[in-house]
Simulated assay, not measured.
Amino acid sequence: MQGQENLNPDPSSGAGQGNPPLSAAQRSNLLPLTAAGYAWWRARSLRALGADFSLEREAALFRALCRPLPGQDWLDVGTSAGFYAGVLARQGCRVLAVDLSAPMLREGAKREPDARIDWAQLNMERSDLPPASFDGVTVGATLNETRGPADLLRECARVLRPGGQLWLMYLRRTGGPLQAVLGHPAAGGLNFPDPAWVGRCLPGLTRTDGLGVGAVQFERYVKSA
């Protein structure tokens, strides 16, 4: 795997030894079977969730709003099968693609074999990445699965350079019964943030763009220069 390493403060990717505990959804992503089928699900997930939005349209929206430039340094948080990492590498960016699941990283590296992407095992709820080290950060749906969404957002903001941009894709809170079920720890422990709450977790950043498609939320934030 190109550039694979483990960036966790402790070798284990999860609970214990001071690391954040994992949600049930995060633990399921550690399974090779989940990783093998993730790209198939990702390509169909937004339609399944009520948003008629293909991966091609999602990539086009991201490129139009964020305009990543060749030579920039980007961090792809919860890269899974490497969708955003691949989009960024094809724009000429250097990418650090991180995920807490080694099987997901192997799947991503297989699908996006680009030398501009480094793959690393890391839980972004707590990281030792240097501050102000990236021009941009992408987070695609990981915000829903993480055990500590506020911690993840804080870390994303911390590693951004002044003027850097944060791109989020997540399922926002609707108050529906299905979200209530999926939020139960035994059913996945998913969380569904409200966009206003997300903004309050990013005090040093300004939201420049926001688009809701069904329950899916796309947002771009810029860190104060």
Rank of each mutant, 00 (worst) to 15 (best):
T146S: 05
T142R: 06
A81S: 15
D99T: 07
R200I: 05
L178M: 14
D135W: 00
F134I: 01
R126F: 12
W119F: 08
V77Q: 02
P162W: 09
V213P: 03
R116K: 12
L105V: 10
W167I: 13
A196W: 05
D114G: 01
P162R: 07
R90T: 08
D151G: 01
L143H: 04
G176F: 05
A97I: 11
G92Q: 07
G163R: 00
G183L: 06
D135G: 01
A150N: 09
L190E: 13
V213L: 15
A180Y: 01
R111Q: 13
R154V: 04
D194P: 04
G86D: 10
E145N: 10
G188T: 11
D128I: 02
A109S: 15
V87I: 15
C156Y: 03
L168R: 03
G188K: 04
D135A: 06
L190M: 11
L211H: 13
R154K: 11
D99L: 09
V159C: 01
V213D: 09
T208I: 12
R111K: 15
H184R: 15
L160I: 02
V198S: 07
W197H: 09
D151M: 01
G163C: 02
W119K: 05
R126L: 08
V139Q: 09
A186W: 15
G163V: 02
M124C: 11
E112C: 10
A141Q: 15
G204A: 13
E155C: 05
L190R: 08
P203D: 07
L202G: 06
A102T: 14
A157K: 01
T146F: 08
G175V: 12
G212M: 11
D114K: 03
L88A: 05
V77N: 02
S127Y: 04
G204P: 02
W197N: 09
K110F: 11
G148H: 14
I117W: 09
E145L: 14
R158N: 04
A97L: 09
Q165R: 14
E125S: 01
L171P: 01
C201D: 07
A215F: 06
G183I: 09
R106K: 12
Q121S: 10
D128Y: 05
Q165W: 00
A89T: 06
T206V: 13
W197C: 07
P130E: 13
D151Y: 04
L100M: 08
R94Q: 12
A196K: 13
R90G: 12
E145F: 08
Q165A: 14
A215R: 11
M124P: 00
Y84D: 11
A85N: 03
L129W: 05
D128T: 09
W119Q: 09
Q179S: 07
E145V: 13
M104H: 06
G175L: 11
P177G: 04
T208F: 00
G82T: 11
V159P: 00
K110G: 12
G189N: 08
T206M: 10
G175M: 07
S133N: 02
A141V: 15
M104R: 05
N123E: 07
A180M: 11
V137S: 01
R154I: 02
L202R: 05
A196L: 14
T174A: 06
A109K: 09
A120E: 08
M169N: 13
L143S: 10
R173W: 13
V77P: 00
P177I: 07
R94T: 07
R158A: 02
A187V: 08
R158H: 03
G214H: 10
R126Q: 11
T79A: 15
E155M: 01
